[in-house]
Amino acid sequence: MSAHTVSMRDALYEAPGPKTRRLTIVGTILSLVLVGIGLALVVRQFYVSGQLDAKYWVFFTQLHTWRYLFDGFLGTIRVAAMAGAISLLLGVLLMLGRISNVRPLSAVCRVIIDFFRGVPSLLLIYFFYLVIPQYGIRLSAFWMITLPVALAASGVLAEVFRAGVNAVPKGQTEAALSIGLTPGKTMVKIVLPQALRIVVPSLISQLVVVVKDTTVAYVVSYPDLMQNARVLITTHDAVVSVYLVVAVLYILVNYAINQLSITMARRSGNPIVSRTTENPT
């Protein structure tokens, strides 16, 4: 909803009269007090259990702590970027198979898409970490985390792309066919370029899921942000402070990606298609 219209949130209420305004002020003060008490209790719990001691926090003032975390973050970016790239390619291929007129191909792609959307990424990671080596295939830690994350994302992306293709007006395909383009050319030259532009915001928001999935890299001991945080914890014996800082870092990164996707969606007028908004079957 754009800024100049009234948002739904505000439209729910009429302009308050003096009585309601007083009630709202009382409610505001009361809730502020409650939030304050809640925060105080949390801080107290930190204090009582000694987690506010300087030794747990002082190493965050040192540059090499942050450099080490940044190294881990680079690892996260490497995995996320590679997994994102693979899943884009796989997603497009699966989508093309899914919408093709060749029945068996369409059915197979549908099963593959549903499989990767219906299986937890952790299970896929265990597949690459524990099952594949039993068949004598040796993968590096990087690929043991990147491939499952990419596969899990490709199922969702295929559906996102399909939504994009469906959003391209039918007239475009009809026009392309009527000027003599083959169905293949129509897809590649007319439909796909437009569909890709439509799904850009959705692709960016999907990146959040990829980044989240990379967090499990510690299972395969790949040095990403979380794994480096665990090393920091053992060297400084500081569980709470490190995990809290790392959690906040992840939240900020993902928040930034989400905001970018929302901005792109608003600017282009294309909706964000994600796991939660798509059709589950």
Binding site: K212, T215, M226, V246, N254, N258
Partner: peptide, 13 residues
């Protein structure tokens, strides 16, 4: 906070 935090990170916390 909770839509942006990775599940594993929250579980570990």
């Amino acid at each position: 906070v909770f839509r942006n935090i990775p599940g594993v990170a929250l579980l570990i916390v």
